[in-house]
Design a protein around this nucleic acid. Structure first.
Length: 882
RNA sequence: GCCCCCGUGGCGGAAUUGGUAGACGCGCCUGACUCAAAAUCAGGUUUCCUCACGGAAGUGUUGGUUCGAGUCCGACCGGGGGCACCA
């Protein structure tokens, strides 16, 4: 039998050729076996989830993929982890829901349309077909009957309906504002989608444009989204922290200042926000955003100000990279009257560092106690008044020159606030401002509303109609869904919907006159904000989901995905759930009970002499050198980085599964690296995992010849060796269960290696030992079920079972076998290990002490003297102190 | 700049949360099988001293708490991540 026929490694990855091999034990034919069991599971619909209120449910979900073309190793890792949980929970008796779908709208489809002249729909559905086949080859315990694609009108019609409900409830609105424009994708982006001033997909520097766009009122839930984070105790701390920072709650005050012009004529009020009302007496100027309405007003008649605003906007776009952009101001023809000292007037500026989007778009400047204000005041020669000083400083001589004093301290030069600390002063000044009617304590959030309009074709149409007479009106429910037209062209940049000859021309549903459809589509993050709800009743026509089904399955018990969605997708989903609650669709607050963020899959990078990147399969190792396969030229090996097409450090899951099998790929994904950390993909690691599969099959097959028949009753008593083997097996059950629950898959794998070694080394001598060997093997096979399901199913059958392992319960550990009668206790002399003693479990302290002191190493150290102290920790350690 | 996380053999990583550091795997070394290689099996593998028995040191550096510190506290060094004119 050739290696090829046995389903072994092909020479592409393993470079030792494919010559016939000498007779040896038949290898495990993974290809045949994996296909066989996948077919059985599918035919028996083993993984189809059916609501059953009598049984406890468990909803396992991995973040659904974008159908980009082919699955990558990140998917393999993600879905393997989810599948371990799903199969484990199923064995533990839960009614498991483990669905899969497609995040199918998005720009790559449009780019493909432009580059390859293929329609986005065709491209998307072809990719889905390819990737679905790939996922099926992994042997995942998915309920494919619930598959959905967000680009399907049967999906997005419900999304449009929900949007209309939100609109009615005041949670969706249109607003003209400065927005982030991605010049490469030709669309606007939400705040969360701009990273370091660049578009999250394209990396292009975003521009600012003033546009009227649809927004969802996520800020309505800002406080709840923040405070509820505390209750998400099965979420990573890191993610909760990132969301908390993003929401950015600040306590402070709004303060009203009267404005006058130089002649003292009243020019209205100016409202500012500050988190430091305690430093109000240190005010030396006011600053308004260049986008502030009052500034726009003045600019109308002031060419100098117009020029200043234009300059700021210019740097505004580039400022993202120039983080140390200089503070600049333009003096406005106003003076502001200090609200607490009516005799005091301070100058008013338009300034480039004040953001219109935060607070009120205006601030008071306190250069003594704020970095930015200090820089500004220094530049424009404004006074710096210290109003907070360190606790031990002298109020007469304390001054701020070089740098502002931003720490806690004692208030000075501030009238009724003098002598207080910062916190107390804040309370007192807010009370006074409120009393005087010139300000009030407020809470300010950094979070802004979610801008959801996108000027793109391949997305869910926004169901709105623009009528010159009636304004913006919703599409009547009976007309939903608003379907995307298929006949569109991609020969020019811009939105194909907008230039479609007929699509946008409709009658106004209110007045019947000529009107235009909204040609923007939704941000695709909306599609993924409720797909987990849709999975609970994916085929329901009349509503997004059935209440009972949804109530039974939701929330997602375990959600698994990349940490890159810590803010975007996870925050949007939390919002959407609350919006649905607001319009009465659900009573739930949170969609995801448990969250796990898996690490990335990394690989070394390879570069040829000419600097071009090489695929891992284009290189070979000869000794310690790495050379190019084609011409043996030297290759520079770079550090391991996240697998990416641009650096070509990718390994195709298809090829791995073809050459080594799905079980090997899964096993390797779970080995070694903790799942939340990055995983280094190595060829050695894969072949190691592959060898273990082969070894397991061999060990099990060999052991089976010694086993008593299936169902043999247990012996009356067990030999010493048999009991030891049983202990090992049952202990592994207990430990492994805990490891899986805690997402410690790498530790679980290590324990399985140990048990495999123990089983492999067991040479049964008596009948009870043979019985124990069968027990251990059966336990072992059940335990590997969630990780390498095909091999496990095969061995289960080989053990004589007629049932499907996938439908078998998880083994139970016998408590009696988990506890040892004797324990090994370490003995230390002055904290240093000197030896170990065997003691009965829970032996009394004095017995432990006596035994320890009798140890030759200890007696020698004591040299006849009595120890100063003996610390005894039962079952752990004895420390003899001299 | 602010906030958070992490530094353990040649490598990935364990360590019951203050109690025998280095489980398990990879790699490497030695041996068996083989004409030979691959595969497989057995043994070894933190460092230093010792033929060995054994001993000493050791978890980024440094100080502390403790009978006892990889684990707790302080300072520093290095790596990673998030936020960044958010008033």
């Amino acid at each position: 039998m050739t290696r090829e026929a046995a389903g072994g490694i092909r020479c592409g990855l393993c470079r030792f050729g494919s010559e016939p091999v000498s007779p040896q034990p038949p290898r495990y034919n993974f290809r045949e076996t994996e296909a066989k069991w996948q077919k059985v599971w599918e035919e028996r619909q083993t993984f189809q989830a059916v609501m059953d209120p009598a049984r406890p449910k468990y909803y396992v979900l991995e973040m659904f993929p974008y159908p980009s073309g082919r699955i990558h190793m990140g998917h393999v890792r993600n879905y393997t982890q989810g599948d371990v949980i799903a199969r484990y929970k199923r064995a533990k008796g839960f009614n498991v829901l483990h669905p899969m779908g497609w995040d199918a709208f998005g720009l790559p489809a449009e780019n493909a349309a432009m580059e390859k002249k293929v329609h986005p729909k065709k491209w998307t559905y072809e990719n889905i077909a390819t990737m679905k086949a790939q996922l099926k080859s992994m042997g995942l315990s998915l309920d494919w009957s619930r598959e959905l694609a967000t680009c399907d009108p049967t999906y997005y019609r419900h999304q449009q309906k929900m949007f209309l409900d939100f609109w009615k409830a005041g949670l969706a609105y249109r607003k003209e504002a400065w927005v982030n424009w991605d010049p490469v994708d030709n669309t606007v982006l939400a705040n969360e989608q701009v990273i370091e001033g660049k578009g999250w997909r394209t990396g292009a520097l975003v521009e600012r444009r003033k546009l009227t766009q649809w927004n969802l009122k996520i800020t309505h839930f800002a406080d709840e989204l923040l405070s509820r984070l505390d209750t998400l105790d099965r979420w990573p701390e890191k993610v909760r922290l990132m969301q908390a920072n993003w929401i950015g709650k600040s306590r402070g005050a709004r303060v009203f200042w009267d404005l006058t012009d130089a002649s003292g004529t009243d020019r209205g009020k100016l409202e500012i926000f500050t988190t430091r009302p305690d430093t109000l007496f240190g005010a030396s100027f006011m600053a308004l955003s260049v986008d502030h309405p009052r500034v726009a007003e003045l600019a109308a008649t002031d060419p100098g100000l117009q020029h200043f605003i234009a300059e700021c906007r210019k740097t505004g776009t580039a400022a993202a990279e120039l983080e140390t952009a200089e503070k600049q101001g333009y003096k406005l023809p106003f003076l502001a009257r200090h609200p607490l000292e009516p005799g005091r007037m301070v100058p008013v500026y338009a300034a480039n560092f004040v953001l219109m989007e935060y607070g009120t778009g205006a601030i008071f400047g306190c250069p003594g106690h704020d970095e930015r204000d200090h820089e500004f005041a220094t530049k424009y020669g404004l006074p710096i008044l210290p109003v907070v000083m360190p606790k031990d400083a002298d109020p007469k001589s304390f001054s701020v020159v070089e740098a502002p004093f931003v720490e806690d301290g004692i208030i000075v030069n501030s009238g009724f606030l003098d002598g207080l600390d910062v916190e107390a002063a804040k309370v007192k000044v807010i009370a006074r401002l409120e009393e005087m009617g010139v300000g009030k304590g407020t809470i300010q959030y950094r979070l802004r509303d979610w801008l959801v309009s996108r000027q793109r074709y391949w997305g869910c149409p926004i169901p709105a109609i623009h009528c010159d007479k009636c304004g913006v009106v919703p599409v009547p429910e009976k007309d939903l869904p608003v379907k995307l037209p298929d006949d569109v062209t991609f020969d020019r940049p811009g939105n194909p919907l907008d230039r479609h000859p007929t699509w946008k021309h409709v009658k106004c549903p209110t007045c019947g006159g000529d009107a235009r459809r909204e040609t923007d589509t939704f941000d695709t993050f909306i599609d993924s904000s409720w797909y987990f709800d849709r999975f609970t009743s994916p085929h329901l026509q009349t509503a997004p989901f059935d209440r009972d089904e949804n109530h039974y399955w939701m929330p997602v018990d375990q959600y698994i995905g990349g940490v890159e969605h810590a803010i975007l997708h996870l925050l949007y989903s939390r919002f959407w759930t609350r919006a649905m609650r607001e319009v009465g669709m659900t009573t739930r607050d949170e969609p995801f009970d448990g969250l796990f963020t898996q690490g990335m899959v990394c690989h070394e990078t390879y570069r040829a002499a000419d600097g071009t990147w090489l695929l891992p399969e284009e290189i070979e190792r000869s000794g310690s050198k790495v050379v190019r396969l084609s011409d043996k030229s030297p290759v520079e090996v770079g550090r391991s980085e996240k697998m990416s097409k641009s650096k070509k450090n990718v390994v195709d899951p298809d090829q791995i599964i073809r050459d080594y099998g799905a079980d090997t790929a899964r096993w390797f994904m779970l080995s070694d690296s903790p799942p939340e950390r990055d995983l280094e993909w190595t060829e050695a690691g894969v072949t190691g995992a592959w060898r273990f599969q082969q070894r397991l099959h061999r060990v099990a097959t060999e052991a089976m010849e010694l086993l008593p028949p299936i169902g043999t009753a247990g012996p009356a008593s067990f030999s010493e060796a048999a009991t030891e083997l049983r202990r090992a097996a049952h202990r592994t059950v207990a430990a492994l269960s805990a490891d899986i629950e805690a997402f410690h898959f790498n530790k679980a794998v290590a324990r399985l290696y140990e048990l495999a070694n123990t089983i492999g080394n067991a040479a049964p001598k008596d009948d009870s030992h043979k019985w124990a060997l069968r027990e251990a093997l059966e336990i072992f096979v059940r335990l590997i079920g969630p990780m390498t399901p095909h091999l496990a199913e095969e061995l289960w059958q080989a053990l004589g079972h007629k049932t499907l392992l996938a439908e078998e319960p998880w083994p139970a550990a016998e408590q009696a076998l988990l506890v040892d009668n004797t324990v090994t206790v370490a003995v230390q002399l002055n904290g240093k290990l000197r030896g170990t003693i065997q003691l009965a479990k829970d032996a009394p302290k004095d017995v432990a002490e006596k035994t320890a002191l009798a140890l030759p190493e200890i007696a020698r150290g004591l040299d006849g003297k009595a120890p100063k102290r003996v610390v005894v920790v039962p079952n752990r350690i004895v420390n003899v102190v001299l």
